[in-house]
Structures are given as structure tokens and as C-alpha cells.
């Protein structure tokens, strides 16, 4: 039995819950800062989708890679991205992960195996194939996980990347967070299949649909996919059905022309943090301790960001060429 397949210890289950809470609170804080005008540029929050990011990243080693999307705060935090530097990036500070040149849509922490949020929808999948190819050359059993949405599953890059990863048997996991909307366009309108995971058959790869609101269900599916990738058996397509509570971006209302409050409430009843409390066995006392630790961490991160200087004008020419 591989390490990932062993039953999760209580300590790890508590960490899974805490990471979900870290993401929820980070994004709530970021959104508040955004509304106060303290964030430079736009943000896209993933509140409601924490079961996906933590369920997936909790199966990874430090030397594994992730690539994410414009809605990537959750994956970033779940992979271990440094919070103070991430908050500083949102506030446009020189100490930010991207020196205030990438902003929320390009958060990366390569030291933690986070190869970037990529804001062109679908662009991260071919790059994940290339990182998978590098891992194949290295032969150390590393895997690359690429997160994308239901919208990106209709990009040509999805097809080309799945095909390349399949013919070369690369350690790449295609993790589709089906949150049901590409901006305002509902997945059922835009997509030829009811389950995006069905498309895996075209690439002779396993395709699994899982409840993205259930962190442990996601974790278990990912354990299989990661194990397969580490053993050189090639890519998998995991589709997690989930829901974003907020609008697509800054001017998009929570409800409005493309979804109803009723639908929203149905999903909210399956909130991934509530589900996690129950299935991970988080007691009231533990919840309190987690909340306290997370608030302290966030307070420190925000203080670091606020105290950091803005980028100097010379920075505009830095880091263009190596």
C-alpha cells in the first residue's frame, strides 16, 4: 500500500479542515479588501470550491507540481503557497510573489511546486503536459496536477493536452472543477456531454466524476489518479462537481440573469466546510482552535502586506529577461 493509500490520520484530517478554512477566510478577507479598494486589479474567488482544492492537493508531495487558473487562490493555499507574500501580491506590494506584476490571476510559488495561476483559459493544460514530460525525464515519480474549469474543457488545448499526455503516458492529472458556469454560460449549454469526465474515454484514460463538495471523496479519487501517474501509467481526468458562491468577477452579481437564489441555496446547503466538519470529525473545540490559528495567520499576512512598500518605478524593467 502506498503512503497515500493508508487511512488518513486524525492529524491529517484536521489539517485538511484547517486548509479549507484558511482558503475560505483568505478569500473572504481578500474580497472585503477588494470592496474597500485595497486590492490592485481584479480578483476571482473560489468560495464554495474548497473541497476540490484541498481534496486534490492533500494527495500531493512537496515536489509535485500544480498549475491553476484565474480562480486559483484555493489551489495556491492548498499547495503551500506562502500567505504573507500572496496577500502582498493582491495588495500590489513589492514583496508580493510576483513583485506586483502578476496580481491575483498569476499567483505562483515555484518553491512550493506551484507553477502559476494562468489567466488565459485553457493555457495551463499544455504547460502541465510539459512539466509532466520533465518529470518523466527525471524519473522521480513526481506528478503535475492542472486545475481548470468546465469552460476550459471546451478549449482545443484540452484535447491536445489530454492526447499528448495519453500517448506519452505522462504523470499529469487533469482536474476539472465543474462549477457549472463559464462566466455566465451554463455548462449544459456549452458542453456536449453531461459529465465532462466522459471525455477521458477519447484519450484511453480513466475519467471519474466526484462530488466536489466532499473533500474526502475528492481526496480518495485523487489518491487513485496520483498513484497511477506515479507508476507511469499515464494521465487521468477527474471532474469535481462544485459551485462558486460568488459572481464570476467584480461586476458579476451573485445571482442575476443566469442563476437563481433557489439553486444557490441548494448548493449552499452542501457547503464543503460543513460537510468537512462532519466527515472529518472536527469537534467544536477543534473548530475554535482552527479558527483562532487561521485568524492569527491571516492577521499576520495582512500586516506584512500592508507594511510592505509599493514597487519602485525601476521594477518595471526587472525580470523581463533572464
Amino acid at each position: 500500500m502506498s503512503e497515500e493509500k493508508a487511512p488518513l490520520s486524525d492529524e491529517r484530517m484536521q489539517m485538511i479542515y484547517r486548509d479549507m478554512l484558511r482558503i475560505r477566510r483568505f478569500e473572504e478577507t481578500a474580497f472585503e479588501l477588494f470592496e474597500q479598494g485595497e486590492v490592485v486589479g481584479g480578483i476571482h474567488v473560489s468560495i464554495g470550491q474548497e473541497g476540490c482544492s484541498v481534496g486534490a492537493c492533500s494527495t500531493l508531495r512537496d515536489d509535485d507540481a500544480i498549475l491553476t487558473t484565474h480562480r486559483g487562490h484555493g489551489h495556491s493555499i492548498a499547495k503551500g503557497t506562502r500567505l504573507p507574500e500572496m496577500m502582498a501580491e493582491l495588495l500590489g506590494k513589492a514583496t508580493g510573489l510576483c513583485h506586483a506584476k502578476g496580481g491575483s490571476m498569476h499567483i505562483a510559488d515555484v518553491s512550493k511546486g506551484h507553477y502559476g495561476a494562468h489567466s488565459i483559459v485553457g493555457s495551463n493544460m499544455p504547460m502541465a503536459v510539459g512539466i509532466g514530460l520533465a518529470f518523466h525525464f527525471e524519473g522521480k515519480g513526481q506528478v503535475a496536477v492542472v486545475f481548470f474549469g468546465d469552460g476550459a474543457a471546451n478549449e482545443g488545448s484540452f484535447h491536445e493536452s489530454m492526447n499528448l499526455a495519453s500517448i506519452w503516458k505522462l504523470p499529469v492529472i487533469f482536474f476539472c472543477e465543474n462549477n457549472h458556469f463559464a462566466s455566465s454560460t451554463r455548462v449544459q449549454y456549452a458542453t456536449s456531454v453531461a459529465d465532462i469526465s466522459a471525455r477521458a474515454a477519447a484519450y484511453d484514460a480513466p475519467g471519474v466524476t466526484v462530488d466536489g463538495m466532499d473533500v474526502l471523496a475528492v481526496h480518495e479519487v485523487m489518491v487513485e489518479a496520483v498513484d497511477r501517474a506515479r507508476r507511469g501509467l499515464g494521465p487521468s481526468l477527474v471532474e469535481a462537481k462544485t459551485y462558486r458562491y460568488f459572481g464570476h468577477s467584480r461586476k458579476d452579481p451573485q445571482f442575476g440573469p443566469y442563476r437563481t437564489e433557489e439553486e444557490w441555496n441548494e448548493w449552499k446547503a452542501k457547503d464543503p466546510l460543513l460537510v468537512a466538519e462532519r466527515i472529518l470529525g472536527v469537534s467544536e473545540a477543534q473548530k475554535k482552535a482552527h479558527a483562532e490559528a487561521v485568524e492569527n495567520e491571516l492577521r499576520d499576512a495582512l500586516a506584512f502586506a500592508r507594511q510592505s512598500p509599493e514597487p519602485a518605478p525601476e521594477e518595471v524593467y526587472e525580470d523581463l529577461y533572464a
Binding site: A65, L67, V110, Y115, S123, M125, P126, M127, A128, V129, G130, I131, G132, L133, A134, F135, F137, A144, G156, S157, E160, S161, N163, L164, I167
Partner: peptide, 23 residues
């Protein structure tokens, strides 16, 4: 050798380059 897949293999080359190779 690659399939006829310019977007796919060019993006893959960018990824491999980020991960320390020289495609």
C-alpha cells in the same frame, strides 16, 4: 516526434522549460 498539435506541444515546451529543460 509529436502529433500535429502545435498548440499542445508548444505549450508543453514552455512547461518543460519552466521545469528546467531546454526544449
Amino acid at each position: 516526434n509529436t502529433p500535429i498539435s502545435e498548440l499542445g506541444f508548444t505549450g508543453a515546451a514552455v512547461g518543460a522549460a519552466m521545469a528546467g529543460y531546454r526544449p
